[in-house]
Design a protein around this nucleic acid. Structure first.
Lengths: 332, 332
DNA sequence: CTGTTAGCGCTTTCAG
DNA sequence: CTGAAAGCGCTAACAG
């Protein structure tokens, strides 16, 4: 691999001149610059990122941190999409993505941060509080995406959860449903909490009394049990709002196992619009979250912060939209 | 951030001694070593990975390259799982994962390789031939995982496709099916080609004549059309072997849209055992591929290569297993 | 066992 | 406009 030094020899100039020419600085003669650039091209020269980084105190790496759970990426296709958005945004830049899945138990700084191998961090999803705090104190520029909770002084990229849940519930109500069950993942997570708020708000808005026994939350994978317990009562709901598509798909199974038909007997609406929702039968109506947008926006924001734009921490909220498919029945 | 130099001053030794102590070398006095290590710990010292890498000519980064397709990671949950396997294997090591999705059109060296930002590369899935060739010539240690085709002189981690397809087809035959359709993604991809071979082999083995009109292949997302064309004949098959679960799920939809029932009217078996296959109704019988194993094995292998174990390029084949669920009907 | 010296590839003063 | 020199943080060869 050719270095700046050898190019200098070939061009009969000093290595500083080569450096300047290659970085297209103004204090180099036009002719020498061209000559040097030509030689560099001929020899297929690419500056060693590591030497450059060493000198300039930058790595051109962005750490993308997910929580390691069983099937953190694959089990929740949501995050894969976010990752794709980040990747797409990073592609035209000089930045590389350093992927890191942290165990929930980890609370001290992750390696990539301690060893200074990243210039900025994108923290995706819910994380251990202490962990986030340590990261924040490390002073590395950071943006939180769909976090489990908001963190003072941090930049967040959020989903318009409450509004989406409101839309979903409203849609069920306007389709004629009055008894609407709500199932969701752990309510202590910001997103699910906000979705519950949206649900409640919609009920109130339409003067429908809230019934606690219609609200079930637990583990995200527990959709099946949640739905079953919801349906196994004397007066089961006619519709279910699942605050996550995975929950909804699990509910499908529960409904079918009880000998009922999704849509005809129980209407279902989800949230997130993961790919899966177009593959199940009947196709799931849901609230679309622009997952790639979430990722790309976060990276854009991070870039700004890294470039020193010391703006007041502003939270970005990515909008959602209702996707009508075939899982909700119109009743009167 | 404290450096080795400052520790040297604090400990009243030279920085080389510090370096040695911190790297736990034998040529340092036990006492000095302990003193130095203590100071380092007190000051929360972590060596700058970038300076170290600069000196040692290593980055401690592994490039993980996927092909960028629309929904490359999320659309095909398969690869997310592979990635998780890689990640898990990387966790206890010093290595970081540099994620890179390359556009299909890219044929020259990816940035991370040109700029020498990785010590090794894991190439996942199908890629542009020229691209792979360039990578190979770059001399960076590399392992191909489930590649679109085998490459001379490269290390591969493969799926036991033919055997799996044989098992799937045999299972259908033994369940009493004689007319078995085959649908798959593009047959020019190694995995799909091998799966077709396994299917053919099983038929031959059971003296069932092969019928060309029972074999349909095309785009992976085309499962719906493929299945429909298979069923819209005078003598449709009673079972379908889909060489990819996604294909199978699409076939479900085709079957249902034709007013038929999966299992009762048409049996279906898939391949891969993606999470989805346990979520659809009826649960999909399939051939399980140990996706995480695929990833972890690849990284293990890469490590060996990077450590100079110049073994003859050996291909590893990860076994598969039949998963019986509810999508195949026993007939006689 | 410890320290001195040199240098990885590059950028950046600063003097010419 | 060009070059000499210094140095980023660390490791390694070698001398003491």
């Amino acid at each position: 691999m050719i270095t700046i030094n050898e190019i200098a020899k070939l061009a009969n100039v000093s290595k500083s001149t080569v450096s300047k020419a290659l970085n297209n600085r103004s204090d180099v003669g036009e002719e020498t610059k061209i000559k040097i650039q030509q030689i560099a091209r001929q020899h297929n020269f690419t500056p060693s990122a590591i030497a450059k980084g060493f000198r300039k105190r930058v790595t051109e790496n962005i750490g993308v941190i997910f929580r390691r759970e069983e099937r953190s990426l694959s089990g929740n296709p949501f995050y894969s999409r976010v990752l794709e958005g980040i990747e797409e945004e990073a592609l035209p830049t000089e930045y590389n993505l350093l992927l890191h899945l942290v165990p929930d138990s980890l609370s001290d700084l992750p390696n990539i941060a301690r060893k200074k191998q990243v210039d900025g961090i994108l923290l995706i999803g819910t994380h251990n509080k202490m962990f986030v705090e340590n990261l924040r104190e490390s002073q590395i520029p950071m943006v939180l995406v769909d976090p489990g909770m908001l963190v003072d002084g941090c930049y967040h990229v959020l989903i318009d959860n409450e509004n989406g849940a409101f839309m979903a519930t409203k849609y069920l109500i306007e389709s004629g449903h009055q008894k609407i069950g709500f199932i969701s993942g752990d309510i202590s997570r910001l997103s699910f909490f906000q979705r519950l708020q949206g649900y409640l708000k919609a009920l109130q808005h339409h003067h429908i009394p809230v019934s606690d026994c219609l609200i079930k939350n637990g583990d995200m994978e527990k959709g099946y049990e949640l739905a079953k317990s919801l349906l196994a009562t004397d007066h089961p709901p006619t519709a279910i709002f699942a605050s996550h598509d995975i929950n909804a798909i699990h509910a499908y199974k529960a409904i079918q196992d009880l000998g009922l038909k999704v849509r005809d007997d129980i209407s279902v609406i989800g949230f997130d619009d993961i790919d899966l929702s177009r593959m199940v039968t009947p196709n799931l109506s849901t609230i679309r979250v622009f997952k790639k947008k979430l990722g790309s926006l976060a990276l854009q924001k991070l870039h700004k912060i890294m470039n020193g734009e010391k703006q007041v921490p502003v939270n970005s909220v990515v909008p959602v939209e209702l996707v009508e498919r075939d899982s909700v029945k119109r009743v009167h």
